[in-house]
Amino acid sequence: MADADLDALIRQLAKQQNKALTAAVKKRRDRAIALAAKAKDAESKQRQRQLAKDILEIGTATVKRLQMSADNAAYSYARSVRQAIDAAAAKKAVASAKPAKKTAKKASKKEAKKATRKAKG
Rank of each mutant, 00 (worst) to 15 (best):
A104P: 01
K101V: 04
I33W: 04
A39W: 04
E57Q: 12
A88I: 07
L56V: 04
Q17T: 10
A100S: 00
A84N: 02
L9V: 14
A95T: 04
A37M: 12
V63H: 07
Q50D: 08
V63K: 06
N72I: 11
D86I: 07
S44Q: 10
R28C: 05
Y77C: 02
A2F: 01
I58R: 08
D54W: 01
A24G: 04
D86L: 15
R79S: 05
D5Y: 02
K15S: 12
I58D: 12
L56N: 12
G59N: 02
A100D: 00
K91Y: 06
A84T: 01
K118F: 13
R11W: 08
A89Y: 01
S44H: 09
I55L: 14
A107T: 15
A112M: 09
R47F: 06
R28D: 10
A4T: 05
Q16A: 12
V94L: 13
D41E: 09
D30Y: 10
A42T: 02
K27A: 14
A95V: 05
Q83R: 13
L21N: 00
Y75C: 03
M1R: 01
R47V: 07
Q83E: 12
K92C: 06
L66H: 14
L9Q: 11
D7H: 05
A24Q: 10
K15Y: 06
K53G: 05
A74I: 09
Q83N: 13
T103E: 06
S76A: 08
R82W: 00
I85Y: 05
I55P: 03
R47Q: 12
Q50G: 03
A74R: 11
A88D: 12
Q67K: 12
K91S: 10
D41R: 09
L66F: 08
K118N: 15
A87F: 07
A34G: 08
I33K: 14
A89G: 03
A23Q: 04
K19Y: 08
K120L: 12
K27D: 09
K27E: 15
K110D: 04
K92N: 14
D3L: 05
K113R: 14
R11N: 12
D86Y: 09
A87G: 09
L13F: 09
K114R: 15
K40G: 07
Q83Y: 05
N72D: 13
L35D: 14
R28P: 03
K27M: 10
L66E: 11
D41I: 04
R47I: 03
